[in-house]
Simulated scan of single mutants.
Amino acid sequence: MTLFGVMDRVLAGRLPVNPPDDPYASILPTPIGNDDFFLTPPGIDDLAPGEVIRRRITRGLVPRPRTVLHQFMVRSTDARGRPAGVTASLLVPKRPWTGSGPRPVVAHNVAIDSLGATSTPSYRLVHGVGADLPPVMPLWLARGYAVLVADHQGPRMSYSEGTMAGHAVLDAIRGMKAVLPELADSPVVAYGYSGGAIATTWTAQLQPSYAPDVTLAGAVAGGTPTDFSLLLDTMNGTIAAGLLGAASMGLAREHPEMVELFGPKALLLASWVKDMSVLPLALGGLMRMRLEDLTDEPNPFETDIARRVIEANRPGATAPAAPFAFFHGSASKLIGDRYIPEAGVTTLVEQWRQGGANVHYEPVAGDHFIGAMTGLPFVMRWTARQFALSGSS
């Protein structure tokens, strides 16, 4: 019997007699219980997007003697247009910036890829050891850049939902300027890989319409998932299925109508994994499950609900105003990304170029995990160039 067969038998043996009274509530993350800073207070509806709700200067379990850690919560907007409280961390080197112009800022979008609230980057910076893989933040800080880390999955940990992520990053940039006015005129480059690339892509695409007051010097993304429907061919039923399932659950948290597609087994499994971090979720791929085996729908991804959500999370409808660069593991460099199709990125590059955007594509060597590292020299050069063009170098 396969591992999925074992899991399927366990699920079948533990199905409740009656479905949960509120299936949607059963898949939401458990709120953080040991730090009220991360809990959204009532009464944020009248605040403007990006307005600071609370702030603090704090320290983490891992000492950062050369860095000041600011944390703040801003009013943002979820994928359905409702107010949402989003937290963010701002790491600023203590040594003065000696380059020309104001100190540059990297909006570093971590590949959170988790479902549990305690896996959000700002919580991990204070209560854990961080979750930046590969560890790029120290490279930014060593160059004297400030680093802004938005908890871009939002209050419901909506892993893979693009609109929520883009809004969160843009509002964090707005809030940063109020928290540290000396960075108000700093050039900002957004960076992210994999799950963080989703946030970076949507930050750039949504900026002209959602945050025209925010100026980006550029954005660079690697290993970018651009089309959920493509991932069904490369991740469903493979060792990447655990993260695919988690991403589906993240989408459902922001689009409650998707819960209609969850069968009893899917709801039970979701209630078990709703607070997990990326590592156990990724290990769940050893089951090699197919998501359609957890639902009562014969073709769940062909339903109107799934089509609408997939389309809503496919970038390309509008082009970014800021210069953008993609890097991706490419078969043209001997080894390509077998889980996140390169074709999705190259298609988006062409769509944005046709829309008038300045987009560069850099193929790099390596599968999805290796490409994160082989692309770093390009990322560092490209980011430094954008800062130089903006007057800070």
Score class of each variant (00 low, 15 high):
G195C: 05
S119H: 04
A197S: 15
I310Y: 10
A325H: 04
D337E: 13
P104G: 06
P16N: 12
E161T: 15
V147P: 07
S122D: 03
V149I: 15
A12R: 13
T303S: 13
G371F: 04
P65M: 14
G371H: 05
A84N: 06
T77Y: 07
A197M: 02
R143L: 02
I57A: 15
G218S: 14
T118Y: 04
A211N: 04
E342G: 12
T201H: 07
I198P: 00
T215R: 15
A252T: 05
P63F: 09
R59P: 00
L133K: 09
S158G: 09
D275R: 13
V189C: 09
P102H: 02
Q386E: 14
F327M: 09
A312H: 02
T98K: 15
W97E: 13
A221L: 08
G284M: 14
R55K: 15
T201V: 15
P121S: 06
R143H: 10
A343D: 06
V86A: 12
L180A: 06
M7F: 12
L69V: 09
A199H: 11
A172V: 06
Q386I: 01
L279E: 10
W97M: 14
I340W: 13
D337K: 03
V278G: 00
S194V: 14
P20D: 08
L39K: 12
G329K: 07
T238I: 11
M176E: 02
M249F: 06
D78E: 05
W382M: 08
A146W: 06
L170V: 09
S89M: 11
T120Q: 14
E362P: 03
W97V: 08
R156Q: 09
V86E: 13
P138H: 05
A270N: 06
P320L: 15
G222Q: 09
L47I: 08
V169Y: 06
W97R: 10
L69F: 11
L268V: 03
L291V: 01
D21Y: 03
V179I: 15
M1Q: 02
A319D: 00
E350W: 02
A168F: 03
G242E: 03
G366H: 07
I44W: 14
V214G: 06
M249Y: 10
Y361V: 05
L376H: 06
I310N: 01
P83Q: 11
S332P: 00
G285F: 01
T215S: 15
S160M: 10
S393A: 07
A204D: 10
L389N: 05
S194M: 11
L216H: 08
L183A: 03
G130A: 07
F369T: 08
V106M: 08
S393N: 12
D213S: 07
